[in-house]
Each structure stands twice: as C-alpha cells, then as structure tokens.
Design a protein around this nucleic acid. Structure first.
Length: 310
DNA sequence: AAGACGAAAGTGGTTGA
DNA sequence: TCAACAACTTTCGTCTT
C-alpha cells in the first residue's frame, strides 16, 4: 500500500481498507476508491523461521509469466558439449538444436511482443499484478496450443486479460477492455470465449457487487447510499433476480434506487453511462427490483422529504 | 427543456433438435 | 446447422417535473 495515503481525501477518514486482491484502497466511511494501482514491494514468500528462509531464499529475479520464458530458459547446448557423441549423433543434435532455435524464436518473438502489449493494456486499466500474471499465463498457454493462429495477437491478449480479470474478481467491462486495447468489443468477447473454452479456464459468473465500488465511486455517492445499494443487491440475490441478468445492469439499478432513497438522486443517464448499459436496462431492472423487494414506500417517502426541504 | 417511461424492432449469443 | 429464445440495445413518441 502506498504508505503516504493515510487519510481519505474525500471525508478525511483514516479508516481505509486495502483489498490486496483487487489492488484497490477503499475508504470504509465513504466508499471512495482512493488508490487502485497496486505496487507489490513484498517478497513472494514469508519467512516463518530461519530454516524456511534459507530454503526459500534464492538468487535471481522471481519467476514470472510476464517474462517470455518465465525468467528461466534452457537451450540445447553448442558443439563443444557434443564431443562425446559420434558424428551421426552429433548431426542429429545439431538438427535438433536448429529446430529448437527456429521454433522457440518464433514463439518467443510472439510472446515478447504480446507480453509488452499485455503490460501496456494492463497498466492502462490499472489492473493488479496478480491479474497481469494470470493473463500472461493464459496467453502463453494459448500460444503453445497454437490458438493465436488466425487471430490477431492483440485480440488474444485482451481476451486473456478479460478472462484473468473475471477469475480474480476484479471485473472490467468488455467496453473498458475494448477501449484500452483498441480491439472491437465483439472481437474481445469472441476470443475470450474461444480461449476459455479451448484452455478449459473456469470462470465464475461475475458478481454485481464486484462492480459496485467502482461505479459508486465514479458517481461520487455517499457511503450510506453505497451500502444501501449493496443491501438491495443482497436481497435481489435472495430473490433470484440476479441470475441470467447482466451483472452491470443490476449493479446500476441498485445504485440508482439507493440514490433515490437516500435523496442524492442521479439521473438514469448518469448511472447508465458509468455502468456501460442503457437507461432502458436500468428501467427494466429498476422495475423488477422495486416490484419484488417492495421499495415503493421508501422511494415515495424520501421523495416527500425532498419536497419538504424545498 | 430535461428526465423518465414504455413500446417496438433489431442485435448477438445460447440452446436444443 | 437451424430455429426458437432470452437479454439487452436502439429508437422514438409521450408523459412528468
């Protein structure tokens, strides 16, 4: 965590919460997302005692999938290693060496380019390191299985990133991914589905709550409204209103309703824009939520309060 | 004039024969 | 492979504030 951030710039609360998985620093009082870049200065292991410390400590950079060869590389050795073979075997090894060289340079070149692109997009979206790692792993697997053939490298990169986001519960919308990578939204979705199917990457359905912090932060809603929206979401899930629906639409509608109830109204347009859905979708979810959760009274009550203030 | 509402038609993806 | 389908979008006219 950035140790210089001690107070929430919005409400000056010192009750900050650092979500290590998403890399977000969130104010517990007002819900503002203060810092969503994650820089991990820590070691990748814990030193429990001097014994494990000795075993785990080692020289060299940490192994990483964001390096094209994971930071470790092996090549078939050169001639002087082959002195103990006869000329026939030596020829065979030379051939193998050439082959490995050709194949690996092709893959490596692709990986170098792709991982550079992946880092660019990932930092544009301010994604945590863990997601970048996972995306790199997915991409590397995709290359090894020859899944990039016939697809542009960039689209596979963004597909891998999108999948990694979903797996780490830091969902970004397809629109955001598309904007960051310059790849058409449909194309991102297509390659995403393709590579997750081919590589058997398991994806949990994304949870509307995961979107909530980001949305309410960019709408500058108060903490009361934010937690109210989360309550609505929880009730919605109990009533099975969330399955089969777009998670962003539900998150947006919950925020819209919460903003009405707490008297800090946002227009449907505003909410729709940050959530990347249309007003119509918000209206549909809004109707369902209000009908089934019986929120009409609360909404009209707070409307009256607003009128009295005027 | 802006926002909310809802009907109608269109889009892209899933599913099941 | 095709048709039925569910969710969501686009567009547009009407009502409300």
């Amino acid at each position: 965590m950035n140790e210089y951030i001690k107070k929430c710039p919005e409400c000056t609360s010192i009750d900050l919460f650092w979500n290590k998985d998403t890399g977000e620093i969130v104010c517990r009082d007002c819900g503002l997302v203060i810092e969503d870049k994650m820089v991990d200065f820590g070691q990748e292991w814990r030193e429990i005692d001097s014994d494990t410390a000795m075993r785990k400590r080692r020289v060299g950079a940490p192994m990483s999938y964001t390096q094209f060869d994971r930071g470790l590389g092996t090549e078939i050795g050169f001639e002087h290693d082959l002195g103990k073979f006869n000329s026939k075997d030596r020829n065979k090894f030379m051939r193998l060496r050439r082959w490995q060289y050709r194949i690996s340079t092709a893959i490596e070149r692709n990986l170098k380019m792709a991982l550079a692109e992946l880092k660019r997009v990932s930092s544009f979206l301010k994604l945590p390191k863990s997601v970048e790692e996972e995306a790199s792993r997915i991409y590397t697997m995709a290359v090894q299985r020859g899944l990039v053939r016939g697809r542009s490298m960039e689209s596979v990169v963004s597909g891998a990133l999108y999948a990694a986001c979903r797996r780490n519960e830091v969902p970004r919308t397809l629109d955001e991914m598309s904007e960051a990578s310059g790849i058409d939204k449909k194309e991102v979705g297509r390659t995403y589905r393709f590579i997750t199917r081919e590589l058997n990457v398991k994806i949990l359905p994304s949870n509307p709550i995961d979107y909530m912090a980001r949305f309410s932060s960019s709408l500058t809603l108060t903490p009361e409204t934010h937690s109210r929206a989360i309550k609505i979401l929880e009730q919605a899930r109990l009533n099975e209103l969330t399955s089969g629906r777009g998670p962003t639409g539900i998150a947006a509608a919950a925020l819209y309703i919460a903003s009405l109830i707490n008297g800090e109204k946002r227009t449907q347009r505003e909410v729709a824009d940050v959530a990347g859905v249309t007003e119509v979708t918000i209206r549909n979810r809004y109707k369902e939520l209000v009908d089934i959760l019986k929120l009409e009274r609360e909404i009209s009550k707070s409307r009256k309060v607003m009128e009295e203030v005027r």
